[in-house]
């Protein structure tokens, strides 16, 4: 399968298989960037995979005061889910429990169009009659009195059905340290691509999965073909020189954003080189039958 070489790194002639998803985005602001990010990080905790968390969410990009609605530092957060209903439920619960509660926070729409998802329109009842509705400039806001002032929250945000979840890169290295360095470089590069998130811890997954298991009720289980400690005893996808594999999973607002992110990640890992980072780059798929979106690595090389 291995055909292409870039900067001494083998690139598998394979593709990442990704799925259509629903996505929404909000801007969270705070008195300082630290506290805006804190609200965002809390809100996007336990949101690595739709399989167990209901949604996938992370910070897309930090925003300077000049680019936020209220002129305070903030960040754009994206949420991905498999249905509009689930997206609405996750958004309401997460903003209600994690952003409303965070000191000095405010929350605004960061996506236009699609079915409007309730934001402040769902949380305003926390105001117990003291909430204030404000409509100006073509937008609708709710102001909810809280102990440090007010929680300012736009009434609704937009959503898209064009989102893509599950773009990925597999980084195969001689040891765990090198795999991690390659993954960190890829995460840093992909972090700069607008409209994409990497929902796993620090953007990196170490437990790539296959569908199904020998046990009943398990929908996913370890992908032993990519587990180096089993490389001798199973039908392994790894060669003898590979002792660690890490995966980067990417969700994007559009398919173009996902391919741009994969392109940036590939370039970063290739630039790092095989001595310090990955020896080989691959991608995860399910044979091409499950996901609508296929990203061939050979099309994305620098």
């Amino acid at each position: 399968m291995q055909e292409l070489i870039r900067n001494g790194i083998g690139i598998d002639d394979t593709f990442a298989e990704a799925f259509g998803m629903r996505a929404t985005a909000i801007i969270i602001t705070g008195p300082t960037l630290k506290w805006a990010r804190q609200a965002a990080i809390t809100m996007t905790g336990y949101a690595t995979s739709v399989i167990g968390c209901g949604c996938e969410a992370a910070i897309d990009v930090d925003l300077p005061p000049s680019q936020t609605p209220d002129g305070r530092p903030g960040c754009r957060v994206m949420l991905f889910a498999v249905s509009t209903d689930e997206l609405q439920r996750q958004l309401k619960n997460r903003v209600g429990q994690c952003v409303l509660t965070s000191p000095g926070s405010a929350c605004f729409a960061a996506m236009e169009g699609g079915t409007p998802l309730n934001l402040g329109a769902a949380l305003r009842y926390f105001g117990d009659g003291w909430q204030i509705s404000k409509k100006f400039g073509g937008r609708h806001y709710w102001r909810i009195p809280v102990m440090d002032g007010e929680f300012l929250c736009e009434a609704t945000t937009g959503m898209t059905k064009e989102a893509v979840g599950g773009g990925n890169l597999l980084l195969l290295a001689a040891n765990a340290e090198k795999a991690l360095l390659a993954a960190e470089r890829a995460v840093a590069a992909i972090g700069k691509i607008p409209g994409t998130i990497m929902p796993f811890p620090g953007g990196v997954v170490r437990s790539g999965s296959k569908i199904g298991a020998k046990y009943k009720g398990m929908t996913a289980s370890t992908n032993e073909a990519f587990a180096p400690t089993l490389s001798g005893v199973v039908k392994s996808a790894l060669g003898p020189d590979i002792n660690a594999v890490l995966e980067i999973v990417i969700d994007g607002e559009t398919s173009e954003a996902v391919s741009a992110a994969m392109r940036a990640g590939l370039k970063a890992v290739i630039d790092l080189g095989p001595k310090r980072g990955a020896l080989r780059i691959s991608a995860g798929n399910y044979g091409g039958k499950l996901g609508k979106f296929h990203y061939h690595l050979k099309d994305l090389l620098p």
Binding site: D70, R143, E150
Partner: peptide, 17 residues
């Protein structure tokens, strides 16, 4: 004396409009 995000939002609206 309040410390609320609304004043900044409304000030910005008045200027941008």
């Amino acid at each position: 004396r309040t410390d609320i995000a609304f004043s900044g939002l409304f000030d910005r609206y008045l200027i941008e409009d």
